[in-house]
């Protein structure tokens, strides 16, 4: 537990502080960083924070005068009572039909599992949102079953389709928009992960929970058109 309080402080430039934890990423560290971030952002000297797996970046309004001041101040702040992080649970519909899953057969061959077994394992886990990055609305998810680990492609695809559900290394994720990418595409979701016209532009936030639910291509098309008409509401669970 006390390990959570041990971070290393450094300055990236004259107005940016980086905190890094030695510990490996875990749910406990994630929750600690989320709570810590919410406390830091209340400080009037702080502009905003960005988080990674085991790091926290703090942009401050004026130049950093003394890093020692910030270190002592943050160490004290860290021990304050913090809110409880519950996190919402989102069920994201995914179609695993081969036309939406160009790499499913290859992945199942590489990891020596039947296609249906791959889908079953991917569906059965509960994933945690660690942070957002890479692309607007791209969720870094933890919790992939280790039987599904597969190193990224040697040559990235130039155009991964929007909504692609993919596995890369020890992670799984969803491409919110067309982009280059080296992960293995095992399905696709009709759900929009990022909408710049909305505030917040993405429904999920760090600390939330994600699970996938299988749909057929008929339902895929139905949700896709409902979403275009603005009639689609993603379900949230407790």
């Amino acid at each position: 537990m006390i390990d959570l309080f041990k971070f290393k402080i450094s300055a990236l430039n004259t107005k940016t502080i980086l905190l890094e934890w030695r510990k490996e990423p875990s749910d406990a560290l994630l929750e600690h960083i989320i709570k810590f971030k919410s406390l830091i952002e209340k400080d009037f000297q702080v502009e905003r924070c960005v988080t990674g797996y085991k790091s926290l970046l703090i942009e401050i309004k004026n130049k950093i005068k003394s890093l020692t001041y910030w270190e002592e101040y943050l160490k004290k702040l860290q021990k304050k009572n913090k809110p409880i992080i519950k996190g919402d649970h989102w069920k994201i519909p995914v179609c695993y039909d081969l036309k939406y899953a160009p790499d499913l057969l290859n992945l199942s061959k590489e990891i020596n599992l039947d296609k249906s077994e791959v889908i079953k394992l991917h569906l059965s886990a509960l994933y945690r949102v660690y942070f957002l990055g890479f692309l607007p609305g791209f969720l870094y998810l933890g919790g992939l079953d280790n039987r599904l680990y597969l190193r990224r492609k040697k040559k990235p695809l130039l155009k991964v389709p929007k909504g692609a559900v993919a596995i890369g290394g020890m992670q799984t994720g969803i491409y919110p928009n067309i982009s280059p990418g080296g992960w293995h595409l095992i399905g696709n979701t009709p759900v929009n992960l990022f909408n710049p016209k909305k505030n917040p532009p993405c429904f999920a936030k760090p600390g939330d929970w994600i699970s996938f639910e299988q749909i057929d291509s008929h339902t895929y098309t139905k949700i896709e058109s409902e979403q275009q008409n603005g009639n689609y509401q993603l379900n949230k669970y407790d």
């Binding site: 960005v50 890479f134 692309l135 607007p136 532009p201 936030k205 760090p206």
Partner: peptide, 9 residues
């Protein structure tokens, strides 16, 4: 600047 935590450049 205000949407970095959503992955926005």
């Amino acid at each position: 600047h205000h949407f970095k935590h959503f992955g926005v450049p």
